[in-house]
Structure formats: structure tokens, C-alpha cells
Design a protein around this nucleic acid. Structure first.
Length: 423
RNA sequence: GUGGGCGUGGCCUAGCGGUUAAGGCGCCAGGUUGUGGCCCUGGAGAUCGAGGGUUCAAAUCCCUCCGUCCACCCCA
């Protein structure tokens, strides 16, 4: 017995019946992004591992334990993409996009890979819709992209999402802030949870969103990054807030919002469902990454973007009972009464398709009754019966499954039969 | 990486120590030798997740492993 395989852990199949949701979300994403002037970009599923594993990326879970890295047969170190931003940034540099009109506005719909234990709303292969505006550090861009994201959610009917906003400073002010944070926690370490003691060394910012009970009292009084921004960062953040206010875009400042990817600077944000009880409920998030392009060998170039998880969007759409609008089709099912008419059926089906119908051919070795059953299961509107009895007169029978009516038509006129059937 | 729940035909579920593992959905066929959705009848389809153990006897009890789901970590 050959081994029976199943999809690898955390990797799911998307069956035909799942597609309406996916199409809906992806079509909406494309439409909204293009309406803001963003152009679609596709980058490879894998990159040189160094694109993701840069100096500074160590200490993040994403780089340390979630990356799918491998050597190919030629010995190159490659890695499956963990997000969309890295590849886009690499492509921006590689294709000299800095000589295009700035900012370069890009969007993508991609699958990304993270080695992690799957659970509700989390997979090892998941899909993201993302947007990147590269080459303009103006706070206006932050507001535009956040606005785009909310517009996208609302176009899907995802309402009441909460926007959590923070600023984590830049290379000029963050080191000092981190030291301040360390100083604050230094003499409290023995009262913190084990995770936080570990974070103290590796990534002190992460201590801010610890959920363990012993650490809660200290979090509230911890120094906040927004109170420790350098002047340019503070001005930037104030502008972003002012622009969001002008847009009527509600948000809450979340001093504990620290994003897990190393390249973020200044603005960081997340969209969360209104009832966000779960910890992995973030629907989408992003921020500014003014150092990334430079880290990848480009000239210093600011960037801003978000990524949002399609699986989580669909999860939330289903939770709130939203469904894609049903598509009405007019499929014609060709039932074959006699096996020697298969060749004829192929031709008739082709003619119907070029007349704009969907046409599906029945299994000629099955009874007509069975073929009608198949037409039903398919949701076909019409069944065209191809049988010798009609054919000797050059006719076919067409049954309307919805109207329960039936007509015989000349074979030469089938392309226009609905008009003849429902004048 | 850590913890917990669950693994019975394609799907959902009953059985929880003792004759050929039961039902529903779905699938196939017949009831109309050229006609659907309802109904009736019949049929196919199960190494009871895998391996080991206890027992006269195990889907049922024990152990190990695997898978899966949920939670933690973290993130979309």
C-alpha cells in the first residue's frame, strides 16, 4: 500500500466551494488598492535568506524560529518569504524604482510561510494582502495607507474594527528609550515572569505587551515610547494623528503595541476585531520602515506599508455572518441520451460557450435521470437534451430547471435559446 | 518549544469490554427502456489514527507514537 499523504501541518487546501470568499476578498483588495493608485507587484515565493536574516533581525521570533530556510541544490541559502515587504523592498532596489516618481505605490496578494504551531486563525502557509508606499517619509503617507486599509475592510462590510496606534521611534531615539525601559525594569526583574526576564536582554520592547499576571502592575507605569520620541519623531507622530483625525478615522493609542518584525520605525499600527479576546486576533497591521531599504543595500529610503491576513478576514466575515454576493450563472447542462452523441455534445457545448454560456457535459453512460441530478447538483439553469429522437428532426429539447418549462428547438438556433424560451 | 481536548466509512455522529461496528448526510442504482429537486427500495464504502500491552474476549481499559483542534509564545 502506498503511503497516503495529507497536506502538511498548517497548510490547507482551498476547495472550489471556498473560492467565492477568496475571490470576493481578493477582488475587493485589488479594486481598493488600484483606486488609490497602487499597482500590483508579484515577487518570488523564496528569496536569498539574507533578505530576511539581516543584522538586527535576530532576536525576533520571525527570524529565529519561524523562517523556512533551506539550501537549494546549488548550495544557495534561500528562505520562503515570511511577509510581503522584504521581497518588495528588494525588488524596489533591484529595479531602480528610486528613479521613478516617489513614492512608488505597490500592492500584492501573496502566500507567506511561518513555521509555527497552527491554531485558530493561524497557519504555516497563509495569505496576505499588502500595500507598500516606498520613497516618501511624509506622515501623509501613513495616513493614506491606513485609510486605504480601513476602506478595504469597510468595502467588505467588516465594521467596528479598532485601530491601535503607536510610535516606536527611530534609530535616533529608540536606543535611549530602550535603555530607559531597561533601567525601569532592572530592579524589578525578580518579580517578573520568566518570559520577561528573557525579553529583558533580547527585546525589552516586548515586555510591554506581556500578558502574564505578575508583570501587569509594572507595565502600566513603564515608560512609554511616545513620551520618549526625539523631536522629528514626535512631530511625525503628531502629524499622523492629526491627519487621521481629519479623516474621521478613530484610533486608540496603544503604548504596548510593538510589532514583531525588526524593521519598523516610528508609526506602528494594527486593526483588531471589536471583540478581540483572543491573542492572535490581529486582522492586519503594519507601520513605517524607514531603514529597511538601506539595510538591503539601497540608498536611505523611507517606506510604509501594511499586511493583512486573508484567512483572518474571512474568519471574521464568517463570524459576523457576512457572505459574498451569490453569483448567478446560466449554466447549460448537456445531457446525452445516447453514448454515440458525445462527439456532437462537444461541438454543441463549444458553440454554447462561444455564445457566452457556461456549458457542462453529462456522463453519457449514466441514465438521463442521473444526469439531471448532476445538473441540479451543479446549479445549472438549463438542461439541453441531446438525443436521437429529437436529432432526427434536427431538434434538441431544452428544459429550464427553474421555470420547469421545456421547449424543442432547432439545433442551429441553440445559441439564442433563452430568448426563445423566455420571450 | 510548552500545555489541554479530540481521533469510528467522503462528512457528522451512536456504540465505551462480549454475536457479522449502528444511524444520518453524501455517493451509486432501481422505482419512468429520453427527463431533476420530494418520496420509496436496494447497493457500495470502516485496517474503529498507528504500534504495543491487559483480558477467554478490546472500537471500548493501559502505554507509546502520530495526526488534529484549542490555548501559551508570537504573529496575519
Amino acid at each position: 500500500m502506498p503511503e497516503r499523504y495529507r497536506a502538511p501541518r498548517g497548510a490547507a487546501d482551498l476547495l472550489p466551494e471556498d473560492q467565492p470568499y477568496w475571490r470576493w476578498v481578493q477582488d475587493t483588495a485589488t479594486r481598493v488598492a488600484e483606486s488609490y493608485g497602487y499597482g500590483e507587484i508579484q515577487t518570488p515565493v523564496f528569496e536569498h535568506a539574507g533578505v530576511f536574516l539581516r543584522p538586527g533581525s535576530e532576536g525576533t521570533d520571525l527570524a529565529d524560529k519561524e523562517i523556512y530556510a533551506f539550501q537549494d541544490r546549488g548550495g544557495d541559502d534561500l528562505a520562503l518569504r515570511t511577509d510581503g515587504t522584504h521581497g518588495v523592498a528588494r525588488a524596489y532596489i533591484e529595479h531602480g524604482m528610486s528613479s521613478r516618481t516617489q513614492p512608488v505605490r505597490l500592492f500584492y496578494l501573496v502566500c507567506v510561510f511561518r513555521y509555527d504551531r497552527p491554531q485558530a486563525g493561524r497557519y504555516r502557509v497563509h495569505h496576505q494582502f499588502g500595500v507598500e508606499a516606498i520613497g516618501d517619509g511624509d506622515p501623509y503617507i501613513d495616513a493614506e495607507v491606513i485609510d486605504l486599509q480601513r476602506t478595504f475592510y469597510e468595502a467588505l462590510g467588516l465594521r467596528d474594527l479598532r485601530l491601535a496606534l503607536n510610535s516606536i521611534g527611530d534609530v535616533n531615539c529608540r536606543p535611549a528609550y530602550i535603555e530607559k525601559l531597561r533601567a525601569y525594569y532592572a530592579y524589578k526583574l525578580d518579580r517578573l515572569c520568566g518570559d520577561c526576564r528573557r525579553r529583558y536582554d533580547v527585546n525589552p520592547l516586548r515586555m510591554l505587551d506581556c500578558k502574564n499576571e505578575p508583570c501587569q502592575p509594572f507595565k502600566a507605569a513603564a515608560p512609554r515610547s511616545i513620551d520618549n520620541l526625539c523631536e522629528p519623531c514626535a512631530e511625525h507622530f503628531a502629524s499622523v494623528r492629526s491627519l487621521l483625525k481629519g479623516l474621521g478615522q478613530p484610533y486608540t493609542i496603544d503604548p504596548a503595541l510593538v510589532r514583531g518584525i525588526d524593521y519598523y520605525t516610528r508609526t506602528a499600527f494594527e486593526f483588531l476585531p471589536p471583540d478581540d479576546e483572543g491573542q492572535q486576533s490581529t486582522i492586519g497591521g503594519g507601520g513605517r520602515y524607514d531603514g529597511l531599504i538601506e539595510q538591503l543595500g539601497g540608498r536611505p529610503t523611507p517606506g510604509f506599508g501594511f499586511g493583512t491576513g486573508i484567512e483572518r478576514i474571512i474568519l471574521n466575515l464568517k463570524r459576523q455572518g457576512s457572505a459574498p454576493r451569490a453569483v448567478t450563472t446560466s449554466t447549460v447542462f448537456i445531457a446525452i441520451a445516447s453514448r454515440d452523441l458525445q462527439s456532437k455534445a462537444l461541438i454543441v457545448a463549444r458553440d454554447l460557450r462561444s455564445a457566452g454560456f457556461d456549458a457542462v457535459i453529462g456522463n453519457a453512460s449514466r441514465s438521463l435521470k442521473s444526469q439531471f441530478g448532476a445538473a441540479d447538483a451543479l446549479g445549472a439553469r438549463y438542461v439541453l437534451i441531446l438525443g436521437p429522437r429529437d436529432l432526427v428532426e434536427g431538434l434538441v429539447t431544452v428544459r429550464d430547471l427553474q421555470a420547469h418549462t421545456e421547449t424543442r428547438l432547432p439545433l442551429t438556433e441553440i445559441a439564442s435559446f433563452p430568448k426563445r424560451l423566455n420571450p
